[in-house]
């Protein structure tokens, strides 16, 4: 991923800036970043800010490139996303599920989405959270089922207080199937959403929501929110950078929490103030409570083909799931 230089330089969230000695010879002396004892709350918050900015920047950049998925009408993409999510969540045959995933990945690769980072972003995170969540459910103590292999057999069932454990501790077939199914579904759903947001400009995506019975007022609020998130995040970044600049030595946890509380409160006060100003600015430009928008989406032949294709494939996968079950 190629971030613009200013984003890399201005944001301390990137822990190891690759300093090029030719570009900035003065800095090369301190290029060796000394790892800090522990990432504090300031650093973590700053990293999170950079992550949000990076995600939005990266996806905007990718969505502007020419490609098949990028060229489709955003309305068709939203429709496809919902249909595919529905069919994926209704399918329970693992083979069919992963078959549909391969088709999806092929489409994404064809549109210039880098599969490596995408897969890493999904499959390094999902199994970690969802996998750990479902892990206990594969044992028969938590959820009874047919034993797949037995871990140990005690002489008699256990009783701890009001809890009763059977004598045999085993991994169950149902448990493993269910766990694999859940993790696959979560991962595939997340990938689907990522592919759509990576190949569509976010403003277009929000505009397209209007065509799906989402009230206009809600969509307008969404669009404005999307813009102001970046304004507020910038304010937040400045607050934390300023704090980081003043940070010397160690401060107590309660002092840090007081800082967080005052930061939140002043952020709220500032955003309230800003909303007054924005309202005044809108009124000055003729806003009277009614929102007018410009539609400039137009369905083309490939859009129709794609919509039909998605509908048919998800139906096919759904039916194939019924047949194979």
């Amino acid at each position: 991923m190629d971030l613009p230089l200013w984003l890399q330089e201005n944001n301390p969230g990137f822990q190891k800036p690759k300093l090029n000695p030719e570009l900035d010879p003065g800095k090369s002396g301190i290029a060796k970043f000394r790892p800090r004892r522990k990432r504090g709350f300031i650093q973590k918050t700053l990293e999170e800010i950079v992550r949000v900015l990076r995600d939005s920047f990266f996806s905007e950049e990718l969505a502007m490139r020419p490609g098949f998925l990028q060229s489709l009408d955003p309305r068709v993409k939203i429709l496809a996303l919902v249909v595919l999510l529905l069919s994926n969540n209704l399918i329970s045959h693992l083979g069919v599920l992963w078959g549909s995933y391969l088709v999806l990945l092929a489409l994404a690769a064809w549109s210039g989405v880098g599969l490596g980072p995408l897969l890493k972003r999904v499959w390094l995170v999902v199994p970690l959270f969802s996998g750990i969540m479902v892990l206990p459910a594969i044992f028969n103590w938590v959820r009874p089922g047919d034993p797949l292999f037995t871990i140990f057999t005690a002489d008699q069932p256990w009783h701890v207080g009001f809890l009763h454990f059977p004598a045999v501790l085993a991994v169950t077939k149902q448990g493993v199937n269910g766990a694999v199914l859940l993790v696959s579904r979560v991962g595939i759903s997340v990938t689907l959403a990522f592919i759509v947001t990576l190949t569509t400009r976010w403003t277009d995506l929000l505009k397209a929501l209007r065509s799906f019975f989402v009230p206009r007022i809600f969509v307008t609020t969404l669009e404005m929110t999307y813009r102001y998130i970046f304004v507020l995040i910038t304010i937040l970044e400045e607050m934390f950078l300023a704090r980081k600049a003043r940070d010397a030595g160690r401060s107590s946890t309660s002092e840090q929490r007081r800082f967080i509380a005052s930061a939140m409160a002043s952020l709220f006060a500032r955003s309230l103030h800003m909303s007054e100003e924005v309202y005044a600015a809108m009124t000055a430009r003729g806003y009277s409570g009614e929102v007018y928008t410009m539609h400039r989406f137009r369905l083309r032949l490939p859009d129709l083909f794609f919509a039909l294709f998605v509908l048919l494939t998800s139906l096919t996968f759904y039916v194939a799931d019924k047949v194979l079950r």
Binding site: T220, L222, M224, Y228, V231, L232, L267, G289, V291
Partner: peptide, 11 residues
């Protein structure tokens, strides 16, 4: 309504 809620949501 709209500016207030948008900025509230951003917050």
């Amino acid at each position: 309504y709209i500016p207030l809620l948008s900025i509230g949501a951003a917050f």
